[in-house]
């Protein structure tokens, strides 16, 4: 029963991880931009949700689309005004640019929101589904807020998947992902596609932030932790695909959970990083890695 509970914990955590990583993976895969801002975007989404809940009483799950919208606009503006200027430069230049922007945003949040740790405490709390209440022999428990956050995150991921498959913009993004020069020749406005892609990545970060706000403490500098996870997940799952982020997230969540059980909580990361290194050696494209988005 302990193993089943750990597996449930791992899958729930993995779902949250996937939701952290999917926007990052999209931007990296399509634009070849390692967006260091991604973690800070998640934190900004979480703060927006926090103030929407404490100030206006809007539930974070209801607020998630609005957080996505705000971050979409911010992401579009950032891409159009800053990143598009250096998009053709080597990856190190865009990386440094987004790193600088992340420092800026982090410190701005530090000044505006102060360094205090906050968290959305839902009133009333969503509680847990305790299976032993109905089946006394099954001692398993599922926290409802984690489950709900994960399911809502999956809805956003499904929306992204649908958008990429069935809309003109989506097909253009996929086309650019496959071959940006061929796409230009076919009449795709790559500048606009870049901006929309980056904005979509930011929107997913914003939604993720809102969905995570009842779960993790919020502080201006939490972005780096999220970013680190997104990195690992992308390499684990394979870059630039929705399914890759999902699989990468779930694998990392389950690995960390069992790693903590078998090797002690202080070594849960050791196991996941060992697997990461092995994958880099033997399967550098990741578990689901292949060219072409979706």
């Amino acid at each position: 029963m302990l193993y089943v509970q750990i597996l449930i914990n791992g899958i729930l955590l993995g779902g949250l991880y996937a939701c952290i990583a999917v926007g990052f993976s999209l931007v990296w895969g399509v634009l070849n931009v390692i967006n260091i801002l991604h973690g800070s975007f998640i934190v900004l989404g979480a703060y927006l949700a926090f103030f929407a809940y404490t100030g206006l009483g809007i539930h974070p799950y209801l607020f998630a689309p609005f957080a996505a919208l705000v971050l979409f606009m911010l992401g579009y503006a950032v891409q159009l005004t800053v990143i598009n200027r250096v998009i053709e430069a080597p990856v190190l230049v865009t990386l440094t640019t987004t790193f600088g922007l992340a420092l800026l945003l982090d410190n701005l949040m530090l000044v505006v929101f102060a360094a205090n740790f906050r968290k959305v405490s839902l009133k009333p709390p969503l509680g847990v589904i305790d299976l032993s209440d109905t089946f006394p022999s099954i001692d398993l428990i599922v926290p409802v807020d984690r489950l709900a956050s994960m399911l809502f995150a999956l809805v956003f991921v499904a929306l992204l998947y649908w958008l990429l498959r069935h809309t003109v913009v989506g097909r253009a993004i996929v086309a650019v992902r496959m071959d940006r020069y061929a796409a230009t020749l076919m009449g795709v406005d790559t500048t606009k596609v870049f901006a929309v892609t980056f904005a979509l990545g930011a929107a997913l970060a914003g939604a993720a932030g809102a969905l995570l706000s009842p779960i993790f403490p919020i502080s201006p500098l939490a972005g780096t932790t999220y970013l680190g996870k997104a990195f690992v997940i992308c390499v684990l799952g394979g870059l630039g695909s929705v399914s890759g982020a999902l699989v990468g997230g779930l694998v990392l969540g389950v690995l960390e959970s069992f790693g903590a059980l078998f090797f002690g909580p202080e070594h849960s990361l050791t196991l996941s990083f060992t697997v990461l290194i092995l994958l880099l050696i033997f399967r550098p494209n990741g578990i689901m890695g292949k060219r072409g988005f979706v």
């Binding site: 302990l2 750990i6 791992g10 969540g253 960390e256 903590a260 909580p265 849960s268 990361l269």
Partner: peptide
């Protein structure tokens, strides 16, 4: 047990504690 600095999830440790 000890947990690492910057740990984002304590579910495994707490599941063991519960047991």
């Amino acid at each position: 047990e000890k947990y690492a600095i910057n740990t984002l999830d304590h579910a495994s440790a707490l599941t063991e504690i519960k047991a």
